[in-house]
Design a protein around this nucleic acid. Structure first.
Lengths: 207, 207
DNA sequence: GCATCCATGTAACCAGTTACATGATTTG
DNA sequence: CAAATCATGTAACTGGTTACATGGATGC
């Protein structure tokens, strides 16, 4: 229901109010330069989330003060000056044609936790995002998340093993690929076990 | 230019003639149950590749013997029987409403090697596919492929390192994520070095 | 004063998925 | 004979990218 992009936006905005352009940069850092989102999907996503009440505009041009769709009336310069003063009033030092700083709402916070804890498997990217924002969950919820992931990885590992003794002996490169996959899954499992142990400890002695 | 799906199809059909349904199963094994393609993209891709001359129908219903778009004329049963006999003539034991077995053409083989050796970086999935079909390349081409990949991984590793000392100290989970990423890249590099060493050996003593 | 970065947004396009339509073969 | 599986295809929808349009601020 909640797309990875929405999840990332909600997560980042829970930590700090940001405008779209900055958000995109953070997204790039969070997910690596690959899979970084383009403006063409980010801005519509922000608009959608705002309409749903998960975000609100905190600073800069607000929805009701949107720039005119260009009526091209006489007092163009006058209107522009008024707009600029409005922007300046809003507390913007520098910045483009009125930047919109978004903040999260209570609804947004709910959506985030819901999406983070949601047991629908989702892809690897989604799992990474969930870990990135895991601090917004309870230790019990995190434990759940990690153990689900663990089960998923075990499942995949079995799939690979079954594949090896599939139809006939494998090509050198195909075998190399398969071995790397298994090794990578095993390393992920070890990593996960560390996280799981950490959460268990938190649960046993919350101090 | 050549999509990952095209690449996979060309690769599999170089090794063996297959029909769409079977191809999908192989694709699933090759790429893991995740990212397995749906029929809705496979069949159009096959049609496209056939039109481009990279594939040809080897068995079963041919393009000129396509089923009628339903003229609903009188002798329906007769036509159906004729169609079935045509199918049977083509050497099909069992199978659905005339399955189309595809084979690769010389053009297709060219396309494959071109796509495999093409130095455009492409995503991880594409790299995996290139390795899976690496046996269709020369040792020198493979070496090239692996070393390009190596450079790309080194670049990513640097990105991650730079990120760690970005804005302020990291959240526990974000740090765990980052460490896992670096560990996984390092392990991939070791793996790659093994492949690279193998190719170098082939080049030195081709026997 | 020109290039470059900041900043937001829209529109056209594209690749993929899901759902639908169709029908044959096999198996319990 | 019903259900599952094999087999091919189309159509509608979806989520994303690229390209475009716009314009302020900064630095050389």
């Amino acid at each position: 229901m909640t797309s990875p992009l929405d999840l990332a936006v909600l997560g980042l905005l829970t930590e700090q109010d940001l405008h779209g352009y900055e958000l995109k940069k953070r997204l790039g850092e969070l997910l690596g330069s690959k899979v970084s989102t383009s403006f063409g999907s980010l801005y519509p996503a922000l608009a959608r989330l705002e309409k749903q009440g998960a975000l609100k505009v905190v600073e800069g041009r607000t929805a009701t003060q949107a720039p005119k769709p260009a009526p091209m009336s006489g007092s163009l310069a006058g209107e522009l000056a008024a707009f600029r003063s409005r922007v300046r009033e809003a507390g913007l030092s520098p910045g483009g044609r009125g930047r919109k700083v978004y903040g999260i709402t209570d609804i947004g916070r709910e959506r985030l936790v819901e999406a983070l804890a949601d047991p629908d498997v989702g892809d690897d990217r989604t799992f990474n995002l969930r870990v990135a924002f895991a601090s917004h969950l309870s230790a019990a919820q995190r434990l759940d998340l990690f153990e689900q992931r663990r089960a998923e990885l075990i499942r995949r590992r079995g799939e690979h093993a079954r594949e090896r003794r599939g139809r006939g002996p494998l090509d050198t490169y195909r075998r190399a690929l398969l071995e790397r996959d298994v090794a990578s899954i095993d390393s992920d499992l070890t990593w996960l076990d560390g996280l799981i142990a950490g959460e268990r400890q938190l649960l046993e002695e919350p101090r």
